[in-house]
Design a protein around this nucleic acid. Structure first.
Lengths: 144, 144
DNA sequence: TACCTTTTTTAGCCTAGACTAACTTTTGAT
DNA sequence: ATCAAAAGTTAGTCTAGGCTAAAAAAGGTA
């Protein structure tokens, strides 16, 4: 088969863009999850400790430490050795946006009649893949 | 802070499960994307070639080859050297399920009034994170 | 048939994110 | 104040999934 029609080429490019988007989202996902969780812990308990992150993420301390190093390198968190974790302004902004998306997706799933446990789990995965347009549609649907 | 209340511990575990799910989905995502695409290419053009996968996924030939080796190791595809790619029964089953989910999510987004391009892109990301319960809710919503 | 082009494969490299095990520092209770 | 437990850090390993560059095989055409 050697269909090099403009139609087919256009479609292939569009598809490549979609996958590209997903791969980029991928790289952001872990960062967003960490930042969101750090913000939650700070707001709820007053501080974010690596051990709590590890427990909530279901990974080891070492993994958390690793990832925090990356986030610090990217100026999203700050930390002093053996002390708890803080968000930079940039980190806080990403966390806030992620929390907003998370809530929106979860509430939307709940409004479809999905149980709370499932809505939480699915929202966790879906929130990273919803464009601004889709978020707007969800808001519209929820009458917000 | 040392809140070790049952309530908090339960919540932490639930959250860990959610993230665990997302990480597992992660590992499946690439496989599903490949298998879905291979099935599409076979159905549309009669065969799936690595070069077409690379073009559509927006990655290099070498990357495709790498990943196909993994899929073959996992008995999801078969291949003879320098020949095109085939799905095993297991691979076909995963591809079919992925295509069904993809269509459902896309159609659902379209039904919310989202434009086709955005619906395609977001569906590509979201399809891997929708549980059976959520899929059922989408079907219900679409009246299927 | 010969040869150029296309496609596939291999080799070698990189980063992220996971792990275990061992070590260091801090915290908190006696 | 001491010292054991908790928390954080480091070192070393692994896999997935990217990349580039180069080699090998297949395909198509003069």
């Amino acid at each position: 088969m050697n269909d090099t029609s403009p139609r087919r080429l256009r479609e292939a490019k569009r598809q490549a863009r979609s996958f590209e988007r997903v791969r980029q989202a991928h790289q952001r996902e872990v960062a967003e999850d960490y930042l969101e969780l750090i913000a939650d812990l700070i707001d709820i308990t007053g501080e974010a400790r690596a051990v709590d992150l590890a427990e909530r993420l279901g990974v080891t301390n070492a993994t958390v430490n690793n990832t925090l190093n990356r986030l610090a390198r990217e100026n999203l968190v700050t930390r002093q050795r053996y002390r708890s974790i803080f968000l930079t302004d940039a980190g806080r902004a990403i966390a806030d946006a992620a929390r907003e998306r998370h809530r929106l997706v979860r509430d939307f799933l709940l409004s479809l009649g999905i149980d709370r446990e499932t809505a939480e789990i699915d929202a966790e995965g879906i929130e990273h893949h919803t464009s601004e347009k889709t978020l707007a549609a969800l808001r519209r649907f929820l009458g917000r």
